[in-house]
Amino acid sequence: MVGDVGTRHASRVHQNRPSNDSPGPSGGTRVIGLGNLMRGDDGVGVRVTQMLMSRDLPDGVQVVDGSTRGLGLVSLMEGWQRVILVDAADVGQAPGCFVRFTPQEAQLLGQDQHLSAHEAGLRDALLLANALNLLPEEIVIYGVQPASLDWEDRLSPQVEATVPVLVGSILDELQANAADHSASSAHPSTLAKE
């Protein structure tokens, strides 16, 4: 198993930073939540983005609701240096647990050429973007194990409880990235020497 398994007890640090609603795509980070809010826990990615949108975000970060965009996800990712994707996923954990991983770690960019739009989700969009050399430099996926995918307009209690924890983890990651970015841009000469 690769990736960090999150639990409801994961700690998080929430720092208040000024938000920036309209950063240019180059060099920035886009957080995209996927799923269908009417299919129970399938909507977890969208719920996470909804909560993130109400938080203060570091500069250069934009959060979008990718819903069920399917292959349209390729356009949503294009041009962004870093993309963080949040989606329901069978990650082999108990319902409500989430795993942070990269496409490489999960073999999502393999040789499988079978693609169907009725299931056109994250994997298909990543495959297409990869085939066209449009993948962002860095992709991080937060996969949340669902309890139920029935026709319901709410999350299961397990996944509902995970949402704020997951939001905290993503905020931590965004803050850490922002800190790295400002550190590197503050010492360009040092970096150049290295």
């Binding site: 996923a89 082999g92 994250l122």
Partner: peptide, 14 residues
Amino acid sequence: CISCSTHLLDVEFV
């Protein structure tokens, strides 16, 4: 468009 099916990602880690 037969139904808006779920788009569950099936992950197998390497």
